[in-house]
Each structure stands twice: as structure tokens, then as C-alpha cells.
Computed example of a mutant assay.
Amino acid sequence: MAKNLVIVESPAKAKTIEKFLGKDFKVESSFGHIADLPSKELGVDVENDFNPKYIVDEDKKALVKKLKALAKKADTIWLASDEDREGEAISWHLAETLDLDRSKTKRIVFNSITKSAIQKAIENPREINYNLVNAQQARRVLDRLVGYELSPVLWKKIKPGLSAGRVQSVSVRLIVERERDIEVFNPEASYKVVAEFKTVNGNVFGAKLGKSFQTKAEAQVFLNKNAGSLFNVASLDKKLAKKSPAAPFTTSTLQQEASRKLYFSVARTMQVAQRLYEAGLITYMRTDSVNLSGEAIGAAKDTIIQNYGEKYSKVRNYKGKS
């Protein structure tokens, strides 16, 4: 029996990590949250400081029994869920539901699934971050208080199956308010003049007049006045332009580029990113940080030099504003 039990969120990630750790480690998956608020009741004690009531679903009870048995036989249990508030809450639920011995339970985090990142995490364990756990609980309780009470109203008044939440509801209000502003807005027309010129060499280029006209008649008068005129180019400036590469993706910029260039929905983008992360091909995709690890920068530099040459390699260090 392996001395170490590592519990991660997804089975795909478990397979990748197990290859790096060797025979002394057994890697199992929790398949996401093993405990949650009940689906058929509010599950939040509003009168008692909004205390949440967590239960283990029927389809997770066999998994919990299996993980408990493995945890009892292991010398050390490593909670290796994602490094965000959901991941932290999963680790906390595992510790509570499996009744893990705190003296032999360690929390590890990593933002890429590579051998060096996993080994570094094992060498630097930490405690469960209860600030993150409480943040997740607050979000979950808010979701339940808003959604559980408001969704049935939508089903009765608009359409069955609709859902409301702490984000959706506010977003809908912002959209409605903006639509009302659009409805009462009185547009003012203006006219721009765009010309196409042919040079003596036969080249064609476009130009736009720097001012607008309030009426179509004014624009027409200007055009008639200049019809048949000869024009000269007063000056021609040529400048070198410098274009820097974009910063590493955050969650939002990843979604924006995937939508703009690949026409992916947010759900599809995150699904693909999750699979790439679990395969160890990208770093963790839920982030607001543009910082890169020294290992990632070094690997990118070596690849660029090897494939394109030294002159195409220029290391940049990006930092967030906060």
C-alpha cells in the first residue's frame, strides 16, 4: 500500500500527476465537491447567522467511503485541489467529511502540472486557507439565497427552467437599464466626407476630411465646390512603429481572444483550457495574474532559440498592477 495519498479534483489530472510521483504515492480524484448544499431545500439557516447545511449526495457516498478507507491506511494525505476558492473549499470539505487527522494532512498547490511544479509543491506544503474557504462559502450561500428564492418566480412569470443568481440578476438589470437609455436617446445626424485619390503614377489611396457637417446639404456644397480640383500632398511622414506582444493571458483575455479569433463560447474555451491544464500543457487558467514562473520563461526562451534563433528571443517580465 502506498504511504502517501494525494487527492485531486479530476481523474484526468490524477493520471497525469501519478506519473510524476512514483510508487510511494497513490493519486485519487474527488470528482469535484464531495459535499454541497441540499438540492431540495434552501440549506441555509437564515436565523442562525446564515449557517450552511452540507450533505454528501447519494452518488458520492461510495467515493467518500473509498477515500476514507485509503486515508486510514496512508501515512500522509495530500490535498491537491486547485489554487482558487473552489479548490480550497474542496480541500476543506475533504478534510471535514473524511475526518482527516490534521497532523498527517497537508495542503499543496501548483499552477502547472509538470514534474518540477508537483515536486516543488510537495516540498512546500501549507495549511488550508480558511479565508478562501469562507469566501467560497459566502459566494455559495449568496447564490442559494438569491437563486433558490428568485428562480421559481421566473418559472411562473416567464419560462420554466430559467435560473437567477447573484451575478445573473445584477447583469440583467444593467442590460435593462442600458436598453432603456437607448430607447430614450435622441440621435443627432452628422456627415463625414471620405475621398479616394489617384496619384500621377496611378496609385490609389483614401483620405478622410478632419471635420463633420451637420447637414447633408452642407456636405454636398463642400463636395460640389471641390469637384474637379487638383490636390497636392503637402507632406509625407514615415515612422518606425514598435509593436509589443500582448501580456500572458488572464482568464478574461483568454476568453476574449478565443471568442474573437476562434468564435468559441466562454464554456467551450474553459472546457478546452481545463483539458490542456490537466494534461500539463498550460498553467492554471483561472487567474488575474500575468506573472510567469522562471521555469516557464526559461522553457519558452530555449524553444524559441532552438527553432528560430537567438535574435528572436527577448525575455519580458510582466507584472500585474496590484
Rank of each mutant, 00 (worst) to 15 (best):
L174N: 15
S235E: 12
V64C: 07
R286P: 13
S29V: 13
L5D: 05
I77W: 06
L37C: 12
E183W: 11
D36I: 10
L132V: 01
I128A: 04
N232G: 14
L67Y: 04
F31R: 14
K156Y: 03
F213Q: 04
V141N: 11
V146Q: 03
G298D: 00
S171T: 14
Y263K: 15
F197Q: 03
L98N: 02
V204F: 09
K26L: 15
T283A: 11
A95D: 00
I175T: 04
A247F: 00
N48L: 08
E177S: 10
K19E: 14
R102V: 11
D288Y: 04
Q306A: 13
T16G: 12
L240I: 15
K243I: 13
I282E: 04
K72M: 05
E278V: 09
D237Q: 15
S116H: 07
R139D: 06
S244R: 05
F50L: 09
N51R: 12
Y148D: 11
V27K: 10
E41H: 09
A247W: 00
E83K: 12
K115M: 02
R126C: 01
A207S: 10
V153Q: 10
F249A: 01
L276K: 06
R173I: 06
Y130L: 08
V133I: 07
M285N: 12
Q220F: 08
R85C: 03
A117Q: 04
P245Y: 03
E18C: 03
K198M: 13
F31Y: 15
P11H: 08
V272R: 06
D237R: 14
K66T: 01
T16K: 15
K208C: 10
K66F: 00
A241S: 13
F231H: 11
K156N: 05
A258V: 07
K68S: 12
V194D: 14
L174W: 11
P11C: 10
G147H: 02
S244W: 02
A74Y: 08
F231R: 08
S29P: 12
E310T: 14
A69M: 08
G202V: 12
E188R: 10
R166E: 11
I297A: 02
I158H: 05
V8T: 10
K311Q: 03
L94R: 01
K26M: 14
A138W: 07
K104S: 04
A234K: 14
A35C: 12
K243H: 14
F222M: 09
D101L: 01
H93W: 03
S235T: 15
K208M: 14
V153M: 09
R286N: 12
S289L: 05
E257L: 14
K321C: 06
G165E: 10
Q274M: 06
T287M: 04
S313C: 01
K26W: 10
V153R: 05
A62C: 00
K208Y: 07
R140E: 05
V233Y: 02
S163N: 15
K60D: 05
A234Y: 05
W155M: 13
I282W: 05
R286L: 09
T283H: 06
D181W: 09
D302L: 08
E41N: 13
E41A: 12
Q271C: 10
S293Q: 05
Q119M: 07
P245Q: 06
R144E: 09
E88C: 01
V266P: 00
R173S: 02
I304H: 02
Q220T: 13
L70P: 10
E310Y: 02
E179G: 03
P38M: 08
V290P: 03
M270H: 12
